[in-house]
Each structure stands twice: as C-alpha cells, then as structure tokens.
Amino acid sequence: MTETTLCFPLRDGDDDADREVLLIEKRRGLGEGWYNGPGGKCEPGETPRECAIRETHEEVGLEVRDLEKAGELTFLLDGEEHTVCHVYRTRSFTGEPTPSEEAYPEWVPIDGVPYDRMWDDDHLWLPGVLEGQTVAGEFQFEGGEPLDEAEFVDHDLEWDVPF
C-alpha cells in the first residue's frame, strides 16, 4: 500500500466567482497529462502533512503553511488496497507557482476546474473539498496496473468527517 498526498492551495478573489485553486498538469509519471493538486508519495518516516508541504514546494515552488486536512481517500485496485491519499487545502502560502520537470502549475477558477482532464473519481469529492467540506472515500478500480489505465467501478463517500 502506498501513502500519498494532495495539496490544494486556494486564493480568494473579490467575490465567490473569483475564487481560485492551484492545479498542476502532470508532466510525467502516474497521471501524466492530467490535472490534479500538487502532491506525491510519502517518504519513509515522513508524515503526510510533511509530505504535502515538501511535494508542493518541489513541484510548484510554493511554501505552504497552515494545512487543513480535508480528506482521506482509499483506492482499491482489483479488490486490494493500493493507495491511501491524504488531502489538504490551504490559503496560507508564499511564493509564486513555477513550473518544474514534474508539473505545470495553473490557477483555475473554482467553477472552472477541468474535471474532464482529471481522474474519474475527482468530480465526486473535489467540489466538496474546495467548498470547505471534509470527506473520507473509498474508490474501486479494476483492470490491473498501471492505475491510470484501470477502470473506475464504484465508490463510497462519507462527508463532514472530523480529522
């Protein structure tokens, strides 16, 4: 089982229509060409929070602080636990997003998130997370490795989970 993170930096505009989230277009690895939040695999001895901070800095150059845990997502592949993803959001960061070998960052309006260019499950949980909710979810994929070529078959979500 792999432990991973996602971090969603948010910035507010003058009104709700101007609210934005920082997404990345993956340039390599799992999900290449798709959009998601910065994040990645936890290193040995690293907490998920530490991983989210490190990965966000490595991928887009932002120094994120005051992370709020917004989700814990378990992904099953062919009935076996494959990945647990810890989801964070923050409005506290310094720096300007810059591209890296792994990711191209882009500020996207909350109402313009490109769900058609994201993982099949993202449209089920990410809108709630961007609106301030917390979620625990389990997502079932079938078809073997690699995960980004497996078929999404089912899910279960629980909202307003205390973390």
Score class of each variant (00 low, 15 high):
44 P>E: 11
44 P>Q: 12
44 P>H: 08
45 G>P: 09
45 G>D: 12
47 T>N: 08
47 T>I: 04
47 T>S: 15
47 T>W: 08
49 R>N: 13
50 E>L: 10
51 C>A: 15
51 C>I: 06
51 C>H: 09
51 C>T: 14
52 A>P: 13
53 I>K: 14
53 I>S: 09
53 I>T: 14
53 I>V: 15
54 R>G: 13
55 E>W: 14
55 E>Y: 07
55 E>G: 10
56 T>M: 09
56 T>D: 12
56 T>K: 08
57 H>W: 14
57 H>D: 14
57 H>I: 09
58 E>C: 13
58 E>W: 15
58 E>V: 14
59 E>T: 08
59 E>R: 10
60 V>S: 13
60 V>P: 11
60 V>R: 13
61 G>K: 08
61 G>R: 11
61 G>W: 12
61 G>S: 07
62 L>E: 03
62 L>Q: 09
63 E>F: 10
64 V>H: 07
64 V>P: 05
65 R>H: 15
65 R>P: 05
65 R>V: 04
65 R>A: 14
66 D>W: 05
66 D>R: 14
66 D>T: 07
66 D>A: 13
67 L>Q: 09
67 L>E: 08
67 L>A: 11
67 L>H: 07
67 L>M: 10
68 E>C: 10
68 E>D: 11
68 E>N: 13
68 E>S: 11
69 K>Y: 05
69 K>Q: 15
69 K>V: 12
69 K>S: 08
69 K>N: 07
69 K>C: 11
70 A>V: 12
70 A>P: 06
70 A>C: 12
71 G>Q: 13
71 G>R: 09
71 G>V: 07
72 E>V: 13
72 E>P: 04
73 L>T: 03
73 L>C: 06
73 L>V: 09
73 L>I: 14
74 T>S: 10
74 T>Q: 11
75 F>P: 01
75 F>L: 10
75 F>A: 05
75 F>N: 03
75 F>E: 10
75 F>I: 12
75 F>R: 09
76 L>C: 02
77 L>I: 01
78 D>Q: 01
78 D>K: 01
79 G>W: 05
79 G>S: 05
79 G>V: 00
79 G>L: 02
79 G>F: 02
79 G>H: 00
80 E>S: 06
81 E>H: 06
81 E>W: 04
82 H>N: 08
82 H>D: 07
83 T>N: 02
83 T>Q: 07
83 T>A: 02
84 V>P: 01
85 C>Q: 05
85 C>D: 09
85 C>S: 07
86 H>Y: 06
86 H>L: 01
87 V>H: 00
87 V>W: 02
87 V>Q: 02
87 V>C: 01
87 V>F: 00
88 Y>T: 00
88 Y>G: 00
88 Y>E: 04
89 R>C: 01
90 T>A: 02
90 T>I: 01
91 R>W: 02
92 S>T: 09
92 S>Y: 00
92 S>D: 08
93 F>S: 05
93 F>T: 04
94 T>G: 04
94 T>W: 01
94 T>Q: 07
94 T>D: 07
94 T>C: 03
94 T>N: 02
94 T>H: 00
96 E>F: 02
96 E>N: 05
97 P>V: 00
97 P>F: 05
97 P>C: 02
97 P>Y: 04
98 T>H: 04
99 P>R: 03
99 P>Q: 03
99 P>F: 03
99 P>I: 03
100 S>W: 05
100 S>N: 05
100 S>D: 04
101 E>F: 06
101 E>M: 03
101 E>P: 03
101 E>L: 04
101 E>G: 07
